[in-house]
Design a protein around this nucleic acid. Structure first.
Lengths: 212, 212
DNA sequence: TCAAGAAATGAACCCTGGCTCACTTAGTGA
DNA sequence: TCACTAAGTGAGCCAGGGTTCATTTCTTGA
């Protein structure tokens, strides 16, 4: 005797939620946070602004979910490599280049999720996932140090340097913008990987003299 | 027979301009961009909001000037070291640790100027100066490569990695926040310096096996 | 002292963009 | 078909904060 949540209805609702998420994600991927307005999301998803609020309590939560979905996947990819086998160096190289390749594929999105100025509420989620990604590298650095393959030192610091180098070179505001061809991209990934590896690997014995 | 721009007047005007800049800078240094409102600047400088607009055409230009003043100095410090003498490695170590020390001294300001989400118009100035800083490292990497001290490869990429590692480790959102004592700070600077050096230095010959 | 014009003031303006809510539309079971 | 209820709508509300401008307060030279 009324509107009931039949399976068909539920399915339609879930579909709509997914459409909103997809629209939001695609907007961020195209124009970054600047273009990510609820009104635009609604329009892109083909509905009214009010409708979006039937599925998400606020702009921040909507975009935080977008961010979480993407970031978790990236984190998991890296985590799987960290937990894989091979020498620590090989694993680090693998993790870095895997991340690098994925980031290059969706540069605008990666930049938005990692570095672009954004709403402080969304920023909280971003920091969380950035930390989570960093944590994977910390784990790997610890493994490498324990096996004597990596230089001693604060593993969190080393991991920070790796992540920083990675981010800056690939998706930072001054990263080479249009990746012309695959060869260039591959070369870029290879060099960044080498740099990250160098950060954690033992230095060759060489005097650099008095510093500073 | 009227108000003239006597030297005394000009001096007072310049003084006021300086006070506005100082207030703006100190606000950013304390609370980052979040607190950096024209009204607050005016209050801090002891004047009305409208007065600020007699000296600066817009919020963006005011803060861009703040940013430029600070950034130029940092760039110059690094540039001087790059142009100094000593081996390329020693110069890189010097530049990195000089930058690191200065950044640690004013962490909040450094974070705001380097990484904190901010107004897009201010962001343009920030990108400019970040590029300028990067350029100094590019020059140094080129020198090192020419002398055979550094690994071959795209110098801009290597410089990006250095800058990224530096920024992330020192002022990134996950940098160790309260630097307890000088010894800790010094240790931090030393490790970051070592990491940056490693990025550009030749790797020891060691097989890491098949990568990825 | 006084006229003239620059400097200072700050309340009001206005634009942006997230969010609401009174109303309309549509799906459901009897 | 019809009563009932959920889903959808979008114009308008509202807050934050940059900017303006009519008015007031100096400062100066005569």
């Amino acid at each position: 005797m009324a509107y009931r949540r039949t399976p068909a209805v539920v399915s339609r609702l879930e579909d709509k939620r997914a459409r909103i998420l997809a629209a939001a994600r695609s907007l961020v991927a195209e124009g970054g946070w600047r273009r990510a307005h609820i009104a635009t999301v609604a329009e892109t998803a083909g509905m009214a602004t009010g409708t979006v609020y039937r599925y998400f309590p606020s702009k921040a939560e909507l975009f935080a979910e977008v961010l979480t979905n993407v970031s978790r996947r990236e984190r998991d990819v890296v985590a799987a490599i960290v937990d894989g086998d091979g020498s620590p160096a090989a694993r680090l190289a693998g993790a870095v280049s895997a991340f690098a390749k994925r980031a290059l594929r969706g540069r605008r999105l990666a930049y938005a999720l990692i570095a672009e100025p954004c709403d402080p509420e969304i920023d909280r989620a971003r920091l969380f996932w950035r930390a989570a990604l960093g944590e994977e590298f910390v784990r790997l650095v610890r493994i490498g140090q324990d096996q004597g393959a990596f230089r001693r030192g604060d593993p969190r610091l080393a991991a920070s340097c790796v992540v920083g180098a990675l981010m800056e070179a690939l998706v930072g505001p001054h990263a080479p913008d249009p990746i012309e061809d695959d060869a260039t991209a591959e070369r870029l990934v290879a060099e960044v990987t080498e740099a990250c590896l160098a950060i954690v690997t033992r230095l060759p014995a060489r005097g650099i003299g008095r510093i500073a």
